[in-house]
Nucleic acid binder design. Structure first.
Length: 978
RNA sequence: GCGCUUGUGGCGGAAUUGGUAGACGCGCCAGACUUAGGAUCUGGUAUCUCCGAUGUGCAGGUUCGAGUCCUGUCAGGCGCACCA
């Protein structure tokens, strides 16, 4: 009987559903294993063959772990909020929920055909109120928290402290303000937007609104006025990673900088913990490196520079340090060692210092420059790094040399990093160098032997000189000359700190995340505005459900789409949502119109899978303690600086709250590669409707045209199908090659509808079966590598399964197995496979596992093996890869239980032992011939036999033996010399 | 510019601690069975001047022996990018 994959797969997929084969529950008698895929956004296009790649890889691992006796959690769900559904709603008026649910159904249908071991009882959808209740809840908790390095005096005694700081209830900070204002707050390392100063009395004198504003400076979820990426085309704010080259990733609309009121998350407070955590998790170096870059920690110093009065020349020490009335400003540098090489200062154009330092004479020039900078879009600034700037008219005093350095204003200094002001050392910074050359400012080299005639010497290597310079009378009693750069940095930091002119400082590039969007299809904020003060809706009233609107566009007055909702006001007394008409700003107030961004719902979904139906908590203590965190997370590397940062942050916050027992959510991460499309082309001869085969096209003037890959097989075009494909090709004529075939050209491109290269998994499943698809996707190459989809090789995998079926069964479809003992050869072939597959699955080397299956099957077929023992083991080994076929074989072998719970075969070394062993005999490292020895031959014996062999004599002619190296089981190397 | 990563047949890709480079599959060639083959089976398939030599992007080095280790260099992919 033929291998009837359609029947087999249908039968077992039904059985799995009926018997809930993949349902899991906490089971303390078994070790747990948590496998997770990044959940998909259900787009209208459905799944293509690239999507299941990661799912198959993780499913194999999940099934393998289950066979090894683990209690495996392998859930799936949908990241259901998103822009495409909303865009579609705007165009068609269809509610995004409707299209989203349709897409989900389609995804589910496609997923079910591939035979995954997902526990669908645990499915989550980010747009379900029961789910986003906990997204809202977490936001409220962040609103009610601040972050500090160490506990405040007002924190509960004996509180466990985190070395890099943690979130604490905002009430502790309020209590501190009541006692001391902001005095001494510094030493606890409280994360804040800007440094505020007020006394306890001033705090108490503030009204409610003022206090609310102050607290926003510290809350982890806070409201701030920030420069945002405003995309008018989408009517919303975008995150930095949603903008590329000044246009939106989705839609390609221009994006501009705009100051807006926004909800933000203080992700930056967790920068150090996000960095430290990377050391504890098993992620690829490249992803870790990307995150390190993104967090961008740099150690340096903040140093204070006084602003000189215009008349002052080089100042004496007493003048420099004591002049009254002189203002100062602070710069940030990682090169404290270059203090003696500063020749000018630069402020960011946006810096509030600009106004203070601009002299009346320079006012016009500065204003003009600021105007110019404002006119430049982010995009222009990104693409060309023009050297521009203007002199402010003022000077700053170098606290080391006492020299006056002109203060310039230039767009190459960023307001958002460090202090928005720098000291310029043109000799050792390429940007300062370019600026100095352009404006003809002095350049002082500080490193021995550094050639700075053409470019700056940026490396932090070498011996320091000119610090101070020999021709200048020292201003302070301090020299760096003769030290290495590293020593000089340390020495300068020490001096700066002791002299009280600055401090050691660590800066991070990581910015706070903007957490609000002006869209409809997202989680609403559980916030209302009580006389302008953002106020949380009581926790027991969550979730605040997304209201109905009649239009998904912003309102005519430019408010977000929720402005169209008519039932969207909070009744504080009755604790419920009521009609907008009832707003009186006494007991009924307007609710926030913004919604949350895409990453809100995807930041803690892994916790929800542990306990998806719990209405009392995000996750119960029991479930969290049992499942802990994700052992294996599989998904694309494109989320390196988005989801994978946000969810780590989110989890760390929940850890601080005691909700999650693990600080890192994803212990091991595998990034599956992208499956690219393999497009096919036909070649139309210019101005005709004649198409010429790829191998005949030279000599014609042709235009390549994308052709649907589904009517091409092994690069041969189905000519009839092509004529039927498009009306304009109905009359097409062809110049075929010598074999009478039309050969198409091909190229590797992104898999997309517009290139007609989308290959749908359903079609592959229909033609070859899910087991073949699973096998083939894994056989294509390493999971982590990107590769083009090429259907051409799939026959090989399908053939293997057909051969396997033939090997396992008789003509009538019954199992071909006998109970007698297996032969030595059979057991050897089997145990070679067990060893290989077990080792390979552990390291996700599925392609080599599959190769081993093919070799083993060949071997067993040659041996005409009928041993039941061997066939049972083979079936179990196959189960992670081809679950349907394995179930069928397991059933035919007479089992009534599922193969999923069979024990993974144990490897037995004894079967691998050989009677004899072949070793290569080599001369001077060149292998020449094999010699056979008893398996337990000693080194000495092997050496003696090899040298005595007649063939050796031939190679040793004219040489003497210098030494003999015996690698047991492999090689005997005879080292010769003349 | 900085960081990460990858270079092996016609193609996708194998190769524990350095130990017969090219497993396995595709493709191709030959043969068998067939009315037929996009079915099945068997054998072959790195290159060359083919008893022999050369071969893992290139140039060196360490070693009895290097795809693997070291130094330099070139090319592709990805990420960050005026971050002081």
């Amino acid at each position: 009987m033929e291998y009837n994959f359609r029947e087999i797969e249908k039968k077992w997929q039904q059985k799995w559903v009926e018997e809930k084969t993949y349902k899991v529950a906490e089971d303390k008698s078994k070790p747990k294993f948590y496998v997770l895929n990044m959940f998909p956004y259900p787009s209208g296009a459905g799944l293509h063959v690239g999507h299941p790649l990661g799912y198959i890889a993780s499913d194999i691992y999940a099934r393998y772990k289950r066979l090894q006796g683990f209690n495996v959690l392998n859930p799936m769900g949908y990241d259901a909020y998103g822009l495409p559904a909303e865009q579609y709603a705007i165009q068609t008026g269809q509610h995004p929920e409707k299209t989203t649910f349709q897409n989900i159904d389609r995804y589910r249908e496609q997923l079910d055909k591939i035979g995954f071991s997902f526990d669908w009882d645990r499915e989550v959808r980010t747009c379900a109120p029961g789910y986003y209740k906990w997204t809202q809840w977490a936001f409220q908790k962040m609103f009610g928290s601040f972050f500090s390095k160490s506990p405040l005096p007002t924190s509960p005694k004996g509180e466990e402290s985190h070395p890099a700081g943690k979130a604490r209830p905002i009430e502790e900070l309020i209590a501190y303000f009541e006692q001391k204002g902001t005095e001494g707050l510094d030493e606890f390392g409280v994360a804040q937007t800007e440094e505020l100063h007020f006394t306890a009395e001033e705090w108490k004198a503030m009204n409610e609104k003022q206090q609310s504003d102050v607290l926003m400076n510290y809350r982890i979820a806070f409201m701030g006025e920030t420069m945002v990426n405003w995309c008018a085309g989408l009517g919303t704010v975008l995150a930095n990673d949603e903008v590329v080259d000044g246009v939106s990733v989705r839609g390609g609309f221009p994006v501009e900088q705009k100051k807006m009121r926004q909800w933000c998350l203080r992700v930056s407070a967790y920068a150090q913990r996000l960095l430290d955590g990377l050391e504890t998790i098993e992620w690829s170096d490249s992803i870790k490196e990307t995150q390190k870059n993104w967090i961008g920690r740099s150690e340096g110093a903040e140093i204070e520079f006084k602003i000189a009065s215009p008349s002052a020349g080089r100042l004496s020490p007493s003048e420099g340090n004591d002049q009254e009335g002189l203002e100062s400003f602070t710069i940030f540098t990682t090169r404290a060692d270059t203090m003696f090489g500063v020749t000018f200062m630069v402020l960011a154009p946006e810096s509030e210092l600009v106004e203070k330092v601009t002299t009346p004479e320079q006012k016009a020039a500065v204003e003009e420059y600021i105007k110019y900078v404002k006119g430049r879009t982010e995009r222009e600034r990104m693409i060309d790094h023009k050297v521009t700037g203007v002199f402010s008219g003022s000077y700053a005093i170098n606290p080391f040399t006492g020299e006056k350095n002109p203060i310039w204003i230039s767009e190459y200094v960023l307001a958002g990093y460090g202090t928005g002001a720098i000291m310029a050392v043109p000799a050792h910074d390429s940007r300062d160098y370019a600026f100095a050359k352009h404006f003809n400012l002095p350049i002082i080299p500080l490193i021995e032997g550094a050639d700075i005639s053409e470019e700056s010497y940026d490396a932090k290597e070498g011996i320091v000189c000119n610090s101070p310079r020999a021709d200048v009378k020292p201003y302070i009693d301090f020299s760096l000359n003769g030290l290495t750069v590293k020593e000089a940095i340390a020495a300068t930091k020490k001096y700066v700190k002791e002299a009280g002119i600055g401090r050691v400082k660590v800066n991070y590039r990581l910015r706070d995340a903007i957490f609000s969007r002006q869209r409809y299809w997202g989680e609403p904020f559980p916030v209302y505005y009580k006389n302008g003060i953002p106020t949380m809706i009581p926790e027991e009233c969550l979730p605040i459900e997304l209201p109905e609107v009649d239009k998904f566009l912003p309102t005519e007055t430019g408010e977000p789409p929720l402005g169209n909702a008519t039932v969207w006001a909070w009744d504080e007394v009755n604790k419920k949502i009521v009609e907008n008409t009832k707003i009186d700003n006494k007991t009924v107030f307007p609710i926030e119109l913004y919604t949350m961004p895409g990453f809100a719902g995807s930041s803690a979904y892994y916790l929800r899978y542990m306990d998806p139906h719990n209405n009392e908590a995000l996750v119960s203590k029991d479930a969290d303690e049992y499942w802990q965190n994700v052992d294996l997370y599989v998904g694309g590397s494109e989320h390196a600086t988005g989801h994978l940062i946000y969810s780590r942050f989110w989890n760390k916050f929940l850890f601080d709250l005691g909700v999650s027992c693990k600080e890192e959510p994803f212990q091991k991460l595998i990034n599956q590669g992208m499956i690219q499309g393999r497009s096919n082309f036909v070649y139309r001869i210019k101005d005709t409707n004649t198409f010429v085969s790829y191998d005949k096209k030279d000599g014609y003037d042709v235009t390549p045209i994308h052709v649907d890959v589904n009517i091409v097989s092994a690069d041969v075009l189905d000519v009839e199908a092509f004529k039927a494909w498009r009306p304009e090709y109905a009359t097409a004529e062809f110049i075929l090659n010598d074999e009478g075939k039309y050969i198409c050209g091909w190229a590797v491109e992104k898999m997309s509808k517009s290139m007609f290269n989308v290959v749908n998994p359903d079609m592959i499943v229909e033609k070859f079966g899910a087991d073949t698809l699973r096998l083939y996707e894994m056989f294509l190459g390493p999971v982590e590598q990107s590769k083009p989809w090429d259907t051409n090789g799939i026959d090989g995998c399908h053939r293997f399964l057909k051969k396997l079926w033939k090997f396992m069964t008789n003509e009538d479809g019954t199992i071909n197995a006998t109970d007698g003992a297996a032969s030595k050869e059979e057991l050897k072939a089997l145990h070679t496979l067990i060893k290989k597959v077990t080792a390979d699955i552990e390291v996700f080397s599925y392609n080599t596992s599959i190769a081993a299956f093919m070799v083993c099957l060949n071997e067993l077929t040659k041996l005409k093996s009928t041993s039941r023992e061997v066939k049972e083991a083979l079936t179990i080994l196959l189960a992670p890869f081809c679950p349907h076929l394995a179930e069928e074989l397991w059933h035919l072998l007479g089992h009534t239980t599922t193969v999923c719970d069979a024990p993974w075969p144990a490897f037995n070394e004894d079967y691998m032992k050989e009677d004899s062993v072949k070793m290569m005999v080599a001369f001077n490292g060149k292998a020449r011939f094999p010699l056979e020895f008893p398996a337990d031959v000693s080194k000495e014996e092997a050496e003696k036999t090899a040298l005595a062999d007649p063939q050796s004599a031939k190679w040793m002619e004219g040489f003497t033996v210098a030494k003999v190296i015996v690698v047991p089981g492999k090689m005997i190397n005879v080292v010769l010399k003349k």
